[in-house]
């Protein structure tokens, strides 16, 4: 069925009766929500939303898989990634070292578009499912190669209870505990 244009009349309302009933309807709906707000607010640091698997959070490098192709640095739309040269042990002769390129990332500029993860031919980059980390200064947001390989600490998880927002027909979103309570 192809789409089509449908001309509709504007619903008219007028007269004293409609005025009174509309006022009452508005008041009733207000009182209904006043009595049962059906809210889904998250008391953020006390509770925090646990995001789905597949959420595009911080990007982490798996150095073992990296083949130094530099595709991630070239696709990055905000030029947040850069290839640096570091010495690594020679694959055949352990006493020698060779220079190899690895990406580093500047999280001041990253926009979490995930292009680098998707372009990586060996799946050496991956997302973690959190993004709310505060840094004390800007310089810390520039990750060197060692930091780039570790998943960052997630202090929110230590302080708060994880909750999950579930889409619900009656409540819109329903806040449910993400995990069963321990003990």
């Amino acid at each position: 069925m192809p789409p089509k244009v449908a001309v509709k009349p504007l619903p008219k309302r007028g007269g004293l009766l409609a005025g009174v009933s509309d006022n009452l309807a508005a008041l009733m709906i207000g009182i209904k929500y006043f009595l049962n707000p059906k809210r889904f607010s998250i008391y953020y640091p006390k509770e925090y939303p646990e995001l789905r698997k597949g959420y595009r959070g911080f990007i982490i490098l798996n150095k073992q898989k990296c083949i130094s192709c530099a595709a991630c640095a070239r696709i990055c739309p905000s030029a947040a990634m850069k290839m640096i040269r570091v010495p690594v042990p020679h694959p055949k002769e352990p006493e020698k070292t060779v220079m190899k390129q690895f990406p580093v990332i500047n999280y001041q500029r990253c926009i979490f578009c995930g292009y680098c993860v998707d372009i990586c031919p060996t799946e050496a980059l991956y997302h973690v499912n959190y993004h709310d980390i505060v840094y004390e200064n800007l310089a810390e947001m520039f990750w060197d190669l060692d930091t780039f390989q570790k998943e960052p600490e997630y202090p929110t998880a230590e302080e708060g209870i994880p909750v999950r927002l579930m889409i619900h027909e009656e409540y819109g979103l329903l806040k449910v505990p993400a995990r069963e309570k321990q003990g």
């Binding site: 207000g30 929500y33 809210r39 889904f40 607010s41 008391y43």
Partner: peptide, 13 residues
Amino acid sequence: KAAARVQRRIGPY
């Protein structure tokens, strides 16, 4: 607080 309840938020807390 009443507006917050109607509007499905918490209000001053």
